[in-house]
Write a protein that binds this DNA or RNA. Sequence first.
RNA 1: UAAGUAAGACAAAUAAUCGCGGCUGACAAGACCGAAAGGCGUCAGGUGAGGAAAGUCCGGGCUCCCAAGGGCAGGAUGCCGGAUAACGUCCGGUGGAGGCGACUCCAAGGCCAGUGCAACAGAAAUAUACCGCCAGCCCCUGGCUGGUAAGGGUGGAAGGGCAGUGUAAGAGACUACCGCCCGGCCGGUAACGGCCGGGGCACAUGUAAACCCCAUCCGGAGCAAGACCGAAACGAGACAUAGGCCGGCCCGGCUGUCUCAGGUGGGUUGCUUGAGCCUGCCGGCAACGGCAGGCCUAGAUAGAUGAUUAUUCGCGACAUAACCCGGCUUAUCGUCUUGCUUACCAA
RNA 2: GGGGCAUUGGCGCAGUUGGGAGCGCGCAACAUUCGCAUUGUUGAGGCCGUGGGUUCGAAUCCCAUAUGCUCCA
Length: 113
Amino acid sequence: MEYSESLKKNRDFQIIYKEGKSFANRYLVLYVRENGLQKNRLGISVSKKVGNSIVRHRLTRLIRESYRLQEAMFNSGLDMVVIARASAKGKGYQEISSALMHLGKLHGVLKRV
RNA sequence: UAAGUAAGACAAAUAAUCGCGGCUGACAAGACCGAAAGGCGUCAGGUGAGGAAAGUCCGGGCUCCCAAGGGCAGGAUGCCGGAUAACGUCCGGUGGAGGCGACUCCAAGGCCAGUGCAACAGAAAUAUACCGCCAGCCCCUGGCUGGUAAGGGUGGAAGGGCAGUGUAAGAGACUACCGCCCGGCCGGUAACGGCCGGGGCACAUGUAAACCCCAUCCGGAGCAAGACCGAAACGAGACAUAGGCCGGCCCGGCUGUCUCAGGUGGGUUGCUUGAGCCUGCCGGCAACGGCAGGCCUAGAUAGAUGAUUAUUCGCGACAUAACCCGGCUUAUCGUCUUGCUUACCAA
RNA sequence: GGGGCAUUGGCGCAGUUGGGAGCGCGCAACAUUCGCAUUGUUGAGGCCGUGGGUUCGAAUCCCAUAUGCUCCA
């Protein structure tokens, strides 16, 4: 991803859960927190409750892909954590992507086009 | 053709664009990050999950720890022979069970080494007489004593089975066949099978997935193993007091510089060439082994396979490597190949 | 990567040499009261997680499997 990094440490996730704001819809939950950097940082979390390893990997990829393709739409300087919910199991790219954009709109982190 | 049975193969395909992880090559080679070890940009090429990668139920390699040697305890396995690095796996047999058959299935050592348990029912559960049968006696529509396991009834199981002889009634008391036990001979590496003789049955119900006995095997932990490089902070030592702070000065303390130990955050390695795969020939019924030729086929470290478009069909199941192999078990949409069996039809 | 535990009425739990499926709360009915609560009596409710096996007989023993919880690194 051109402008972004991924979140790795559990500590980073915990900070965002504590200090960030969250919105949710049917498939996803999105936490956002300003990090004061030039870049965005993205973390994806899929719980074991959602499904087996195949399902979890698939969802991770769909979320990463939809973020990658829409990356230019987001403001910069944000830490974001996307959590997949159990109802997202078995859904396709179109649904996941539109769910992510919907949450971005709710947070007001999308650039005005 | 239909039904079945056994073995095996495949796991949607093709193209384009964008994106991700290793690898190789070329160009940059420094202006970056870091204390160090080390990492790093662009382009091109090639490569990138499974038959179960799963469950973690077994076995081994590898690594470290412990260790003079041996035993006990504990655990596992359990007909015989073979294969193998090893196995609880596989192959071939034996015995038993199922099927018309092809074929399939079996935790299949030992309750005549010992101990325990067997509710209820039943007279009695390893020792006995309730009914009955027979004999004798008596106070004779009955009772008592003795004999008896053929019959009834209970039970999952009643003391070898069945037929005959025999007897007061019966009984391996005796006899034939079957079963059991013992001994011998023959075949087989063996499990075992066949034959002969004896015991006349005294040992003899079931349970070892009850304790246990017998035989064989097993040291412990696991790649977050282990090895290497190694900040900061903490610790030890040395030096300098040249400088700063405490002070009038010295000692001393803090600070400073250097060294060492330890090995945390972090990094490198272990990390993929291996009991490897494919083809052919040879040995073996087979599992498998030998020889020759060819091939190199993921290596991530928060963890890489996705998205879009087009075409085709049956509209795609179960499911993602994490040190590596050999098995087992479980999940699974379907497609195909071959051998064999049975039934029907045709020649 | 290794190990352990649990699963029994609606809920929480007992259940050992393998033979009866139980306890408390809850539920229903009846009694008591003018009525309710309390109390008492009675009752319903179970494939003992699932599938096989051993045994005459399995909640219990053995094997496989599912779900949940938990420990160590």
